[in-house]
Design a protein around this nucleic acid. Structure first.
Lengths: 169, 169
DNA sequence: CCTATCATGTAATCCGTTACATGATTAT
DNA sequence: ATAATCATGTAACGGATTACATGATAGG
């Protein structure tokens, strides 16, 4: 069976998180997203219900549904799903992220820089210090998969703080 | 009339570009996007046809259609549209951009850092040097609305180059 | 015991992307 | 002249967001 579906970043997020968990319900996925990934790639919780369903229809996930009670759905990777994830991980993408920053967009269209900087600075500072605290807590022995994205986040938040500070002053 | 529509970032981009142009066709908008804005906030060209239509339906744009020939549609802001843009520009947003970087996402799920860095570095370096060339060309007297976003772009591209270089080495 | 919040999910809407299509220019 | 590319637009699909809804659990 397994109809053709297109795999989006969201798909790979669900595949990746599910593999890490072994088996997971949408709600568990939501927890994991909130615990870290969501900082740099957020997902609406409704998608954590619809996307696994899509992936199951495509043959990438297998669904097991509880018989009684809440009848929760549990998902795990199929061989196809595991392979798709592997292939994606192996592909050294040259795609770049776009900035898509709401504040920058306003600047571009002529907003006053000063008030913008005053709104942006505290939230960037907060995010930066959250990241730094997390990194400190994890220590130097944290796995690369966690440490590197975190360091990237820190670098970019520092850059934002620099940028808006220059304007605020 | 004018049905209720929700204004998205895309809406404000169309409003902002249209105001700057005085009057514009979708194709002209496309040109302007390609000329700069698209670097940090890209738009599919089809949206530059559908979004003005939506905005016109909402009463934010007025449409004038050529009688003969190509029957092109020309759009300009209405008073409502101009006001909406003003309000948006005045609002000192505290919303932050997310990284949403395809390479980082792969790192997070355990991809090999080295090959990724080798794919990412050249494109980031290219983008960085494009930006720097553009800034040099514009000179120090460029309007803030252009210069600041460009400087932000440069800062972040430098950060990416730093990040991936550390990994590549 | 009541209420607030967490847990868990479904449904509808709609924006954004992709695919398709054709007339006009420019290059060879 | 013909091919290629630019200019200009429409249509369809689908993923993502928003809104709605209800059962369980914990706090006061």
């Amino acid at each position: 069976m397994s109809s053709e579906i297109r795999l989006t970043p969201t798909s790979y997020i669900v595949l990746g998180l599910t593999e890490a968990a072994g088996e997971a319900t949408p709600y568990e996925l939501k927890q994991v997203v909130a615990a870290g990934l969501g900082d740099f790639w957020s997902i609406q919780h409704a998608q954590l219900y619809s996307e696994p369903e899509r992936l199951a229809a495509g043959g990438y996930l297998a669904e097991r549904r509880e018989k009684g009670g809440r009848r929760r759905r549990h998902y795990k990777l199929t061989a196809t799903g595991r392979q798709a994830l592997r292939d994606w991980l192996k592909e050294p993408t040259a795609d770049l992220a776009e900035l898509r920053d709401p504040g920058l967009l306003r600047l571009f269209f002529g907003a006053e820089p000063k008030p913008l900087s005053e709104a942006q600075l505290p939230v960037h500072r907060k995010k930066l210090s959250d990241y730094e605290a997390l990194l400190a807590e994890l220590g130097a022995d944290a796995p690369e998969a966690i440490r590197l994205p975190l360091e990237a986040g820190i670098g970019h938040e520092r850059e934002w703080v620099r940028f808006w500070s220059k304007i605020a002053k």
